[in-house]
Design a protein around this nucleic acid. Sequence first.
DNA 1: GAGTGGTCTAGACCACACG
DNA 2: GTGTGGTCTAGACCACTCC
Lengths: 262, 262
Amino acid sequence: MPKAYEEIADDLRRSIRTGGLPPGARLPAETELARRFGKSVPTIRNALRMLSAEGLIDKRHGSGTFVRRPRTRTLRDNTRLQWDKDRARMPEATRAATGATEHETGLVLDDLVFFARYRELGAPGDLAEAFGVPPGTVLLERTYRTRCSAEPAPFSLVSSYLVRDLIAANPALLDETREPWPGGTQHQLRTVGIEVARVEERVTARPPTPEEARELDLPAGTSVIVLRKTSYDIHGRVVDVSVVTLPGDRTELLFTTHLERW
Amino acid sequence: MPKAYEEIADDLRRSIRTGGLPPGARLPAETELARRFGKSVPTIRNALRMLSAEGLIDKRHGSGTFVRRPRTRTLRDNTRLQWDKDRARMPEATRAATGATEHETGLVLDDLVFFARYRELGAPGDLAEAFGVPPGTVLLERTYRTRCSAEPAPFSLVSSYLVRDLIAANPALLDETREPWPGGTQHQLRTVGIEVARVEERVTARPPTPEEARELDLPAGTSVIVLRKTSYDIHGRVVDVSVVTLPGDRTELLFTTHLERW
DNA sequence: GAGTGGTCTAGACCACACG
DNA sequence: GTGTGGTCTAGACCACTCC
């Protein structure tokens, strides 16, 4: 027996894919759809919930159900890592003038609103393993939120971890009021003699937690991209671990790999 | 006024996060939960649907609701691109002996089940633009499904596109029965004198379409990672565009970036 | 067969958007 | 104010799983 709500969802999905219902279009009211399909309102709602979970529609309380428009994506490019490294050797004036790049995204801090918070904690198991230190070693946790001044929601949630003893030689690095630091993390590390030689970025995706959905202003039917970044210095030692949570509907990651010539 | 189903969802979510309900544990029946929380069954179902969408629980018709266990992730490493390139110059015996790497994933074709289908089509707008050719130019579309012999579902959906005239010099490249090709795409391109110098991989994430959920056997509350791979030859010409769809609950992408020394 | 979640109905009342 | 979707109830019947 065909399930009514799936048939209805299929029907509407087809209309959306073929363009019969273009992006931004308003769907008929649920009561109207119930009448047309000859089913009850809860059944219609069931069908619409499927489409909502797939990210095809947005339901707006009080005004209707609309076909979702694709979001414009911000690009996050791994060549920014080299660019950051080059910049870390520039004089402060230059570093400040180029505009501090937004941490972890590669955007420029011009019309960006920036927020940072520092906290010390004992390394939990997974971070201790990542750094190769005993569990409980004191880490500095730095939490960042950055957003365009135009948009209300941040475009990334960043937690960066450093081993405190590795950077304590420069007390300024422990002071959150010095953020945003001109030149970024690579310059901060340079002030204590650390040079980053290699960065590993691990990418996964999953649905957002309610907290992430709230902070990133994510509608139903979207995913987050979770990027776990590990920075190694020239001796192969782990010097920074960052966890970056990005909105899947607004973010594109670009990784360029150069191959050796034959 | 607090919403009942959110309160219930929060309560259960807390139990799951703190470990009060460990992975694999069965939740009480919906009727039982309704009794405990003093709400109707549909309200309980509403709360459970939230947790399901977040990927915290699995509902199994007939047997109950369970806390989801994290899946083990397969790693997809961008250093495989160089490895593939090196292998493309090996003699056929070596290429076959190393086991043809699974296209786009870096796994070895030992206990892998492999399926390929070829088709020609006129380039639609986005692909024509990516290749820098006029729309309608004939492309070869190659569709791959690969899975572990143990698992029923494939671990990636791959569509690879080549400009037919660029590879037609070797008719074997147009023959799907030659798959799996020992040495992979980079060796295939080598047979017509093409050397890949650079690969760009663009990563996004979103909820699966119903078709993807079916093919990849994705439960509710998971995402897909979409990887759009563009290969450039030594003259900067685009020679391959691939779209790879990966299950977000079973996949981790690893990108390593080496930085120049100071 | 007993128990589970899945589908569907019918309707009441509330919260929100917009004119 | 009017119409929209959001929440919640109460219950019937079906389909699946497992003993």
